[in-house]
Amino acid sequence: MQFNFDDYYKGLNKGNVLMAYHGNITAEWINGVLESIESKLDSANEDPKIKKKLYNVLVEGLQNLFHHVDDLPDEIANLFTKKFGVVVITKDCNKYIVSLGNFVEHSKAQYLKDKIDKINSLTEEELKDMYKFILNHQKLSAKGGGGLGLLDMARKTGNKLEYTFYQFNSNYMFFNLNVTIN
């Protein structure tokens, strides 16, 4: 699928939008988002269970972006930003959708796709076993990533992870992940 950012971003911003952002992903920005979403959910008197799950997904999703958004090459950075990422949260009836987007190299795209397909194929019990196995056997990366973020989102929400890879150029794809919390 050929990628048109404006169409893509417009497509995400439908219905009741709690927040929408596209730009550099930094630690300070993440702190601000977490704070503002938490206070929004508090003032909306959201069910504590939904609130916790959404907050958890957001923490993992934003930190995944932070860890995995590498410095983009100039050809992309000039059009977007150096550490470009997208986060949109919408609410539809009683369900929240967190959309996360970033550029990935073709070589990583396949790995990511396989990983998500694997996660989506597992039952609740199998997700738990895989989580415990990775927790106990895999070391943290230098950046502090544990390879557990996607797994945790699937496990906590009980929903499949929906993804799309858009063709951007010969080296990069744009990866979008939708996580539903209900």
Binding site: K52, N56, Q63, L135, N136, L148, G149
Partner: peptide, 12 residues
């Protein structure tokens, strides 16, 4: 109250 997956390994 909350912990992220990066912390989960350190807690272990």
């Amino acid at each position: 109250e909350y912990f992220n997956t990066s912390s989960s390994k350190c807690i272990l």
